[in-house]
């Protein structure tokens, strides 16, 4: 039923190209703390948007608002042209009107977390087939074949029956990426995917993400890896204290930053 509704929306808008992610004027307050102060961002099909900025700039909060893990205080979010219906709840934030709509939209957005968040009681292959089988109702055999192909792609086919606790951080994160791909998402959201990794393990994860970018996947990426953002992103957004300070193509952002803050930020990173 949920899938049928999703298909209907897609075919109705077949004529105009769908905008995978369109966020308008997003605000988020945690009590007195104004974390996001009116952020708008559009990701078109195939865009790789990198969100950069210092800690506390609101980039992770913004990413988490896109799939409603965090409830924004005001603003609007549309995925594939479908706006998430929101209304004020008792806490003053916007809560979804229809949980089912949010669940359906979440199956088009796949998130990769800083600390992997693989389900520890399931093997890698079970982690990858879990959502296809139990949420998307894909037949078990088909899900398993797809999962094996995905684990092969991220170089973990041999480890498919291992439990996450027995793998390195880099391997866990690559498995988490396979889990994200298994739902065949329209957009991939990366929340600092390499920040929790030992330096020598960062490369293997970035290689997988780069591979996906070259596939033409739509991705929004919160990252501290400036060199990587410069090479992979099609669009870079610099956030400072909850606002977009500067944005543009990576050459412009890293080559000739306008604002003093961005200049200082880039210097501090190098």
């Amino acid at each position: 039923m949920a899938t049928a509704a999703g298909l209907a929306t897609r075919s109705a808008a077949d004529t105009a190209p769908l905008v995978p992610v369109e966020v308008k004027n997003l605000h988020k307050r945690f009590g007195d703390l104004h974390v996001l102060k009116g952020i708008s961002l559009t990701a078109n099909k195939g865009d790789v948007v990198a969100l950069i900025g210092g800690s506390g700039s609101g980039k992770s909060t913004f990413l988490r608002c896109i799939n409603m893990l965090e409830h924004p205080t005001s603003g609007s979010i549309a995925i594939d042209g479908e706006e998430i219906r929101l209304r004020k709840d008792s806490s003053g934030d916007l809560a979804p009107v229809d949980r089912r709509q949010v669940r359906r939209i979440r199956t088009r957005l796949a998130m990769v977390f800083q600390s992997f968040n693989l389900w520890q009681h399931l093997t890698l292959i079970q982690n990858v087939t879990e959502v296809p089988v139990h949420v998307l109702k894909v037949p078990r055999e088909e899900a398993r074949e797809r999962a094996e192909a995905l684990l092969h792609r991220v170089g973990l086919y041999e480890k498919r029956d291992a439990y996450p606790a027995f793998l390195s951080g880099g391997q866990q994160q690559r498995a988490a990426i396979a889990r994200a791909l298994a739902i065949q998402p329209d957009v991939l959201l990366f929340d600092e995917p390499t920040s929790a990794l030992d330096p020598e393990l960062v490369g293997e994860v970035l290689a997988v993400i780069r591979d996906l970018a070259e596939d033409g996947r739509t991705m929004i990426l919160v990252t501290h890896e400036m060199k990587f953002a410069r090479e992979v992103a099609s669009h870079v957004v610099f956030l400072h204290s909850g606002q977009i300070e500067e944005q543009g193509p990576p050459e412009a952002i890293f080559g000739s930053p306008n604002s003093e803050r961005l200049q200082r930020f880039i210097q501090s990173i190098h």
Partner: peptide, 20 residues
């Protein structure tokens, strides 16, 4: 984080409880 991951992938409350 594991609960959050399940929610982020569109799991409903009951499925989340039963499976994760």
């Amino acid at each position: 984080g594991e609960i959050e991951a399940a929610r982020a992938f569109g799991m409903g409350r009951f499925t989340l409880l039963r499976r994760i």
